[in-house]
Design a protein around this nucleic acid. Structure first.
Lengths: 226, 226
DNA sequence: GAATGTGAAAAGCTTCACAGCC
DNA sequence: GGCTGTGAAGCTTTTCACATTC
């Protein structure tokens, strides 16, 4: 590994590389060229080479990258070998969909607590967990050592929930609600906005006014398009 | 409105502005400064001014922006006044969550068809729609003039479904599956990757190796963080 | 005084081209 | 011949500073 900084744009693509490499590994593919990775990700080969070069030199010239080796390097960089204890707040449709996704995501993310405010849901079981009241967020977050929380509540509840999570020592929040969340400086919020994705997609074909991009479909598509 | 191109990065932020402006309008706020918008979006005032300046000059110096006026301008740019007919493919947890979100999203996006492959779901009702078999995708897409489709199927089914949608004349695909989708050149796929968001968030606090960004939390957070 | 709008500078990212290695 | 790794070039985006308007 090198000692330089990794550009944020590169870091944002690494999860996609991991995903594709896992597929290759599952299919017993041992070797992958940057070209091959480019084809399966919708990116360009030189971009992939450049991205990987920020983390180190993993490939063999004239040959390509050893899939399992590269996978291990990226996993290590993304801290996928450790377990992240995740709390889910809001067990509605979206919340339950995310919980389901989580379990499909490998061993790195462990659903360690589920909170809701509805008395119909509190007490019910999600896998081996019991849905708890939002009132217990600070205490339980601390007890279970929650590392990150997923906000999937109605927008109006989001800030209050975030405050309780912060009180419970949670530093990383993934916000699926429409609300803007304020947190102390040592915490991080990452927003996922479903409606924005929709609008951005729509814009792509409207584009009465040209979008200034290198290649039309590519750069604008955020996290990889084809 | 001006006649220059709008940077892709700017275009990607417009949906967020619309969201916040709508909140302000709902609260009967008539005037907003770039500073105020910055506070509610987690961005910087000069960025907002710059972004808006690509679309035209909507503000009054020394005063600020008229909320309803600005909202109308942005809505017009994002084609939010027309109706986009949306098809949902895959009515599982995620699919139903998205369908629910759609209805909360204003009048611009109309859920016009729902497809699934499970015989338990086919025939059941979603609002005023009947869940149809995936076999009917090409025909029904054409009949109902579907503009965009949401893919929320298992990954292995995604490419097949995408092919059927393309056959039905659908040009815009929002892909929530883990699969990489290939489409003809006149179609656009936009990928939304829940697990990548997770990993990206985790990376933010690991960061043993510094991320090269202007301001730590900001640029890396993709679509707005705090 | 307060706020916008915008050139220009600075920073960041992608693409290119090619040296180096298998 | 095929493929990686990387400096350098080119392009995009952000930030700054300030003239301009209310």
């Amino acid at each position: 590994m090198k000692n330089d900084a990794v550009p944020a744009a590169t870091a944002a693509r690494l999860p996609l590389y991991v995903r594709r490499l896992r597929e290759l590994a599952r299919n017993r593919v041992e070797l992958a060229s940057s070209r091959k990775l480019a084809d399966t990700t919708g990116l360009e080969a030189h971009q992939i080479r450049k991205d990987l070069s920020y983390l180190g030199t993993f490939g063999k010239r004239g040959v390509g990258y050893q899939v399992d080796d590269l996978l291990e390097q990226l996993s290590s960089y993304l801290s996928l070998s450790r377990v992240w204890r995740v709390a889910l707040v809001g067990y509605g449709r979206l919340g339950s969909a995310i919980a389901c996704h989580l379990t499909l995501l490998g061993n790195s993310y462990h659903l360690s607590a589920v909170f809701d405010c509805s008395y119909q849901k509190i007490g019910s079981a999600v896998e081996d967990l019991e849905v708890l009241s939002w009132r217990q967020i600070p205490l339980v977050s601390r007890q279970r050592g929650i590392d990150m929380a997923i906000l999937a509540t109605p927008p109006l509840a989001a800030q209050g929930v975030a405050d309780l999570l912060v009180e419970g020592g949670v530093k990383l929040l993934l916000n699926f609600t429409a609300a803007q969340i304020a947190v102390p400086g040592d915490c991080t919020v990452r927003n996922v906005d479903l409606s924005a994705e929709m609008q951005a997609l729509a814009l792509q074909h409207t584009a009465r006014k040209p979008l200034r991009t290198r290649e039309h479909a590519r750069a604008f598509a955020g996290r990889g398009a084809s």
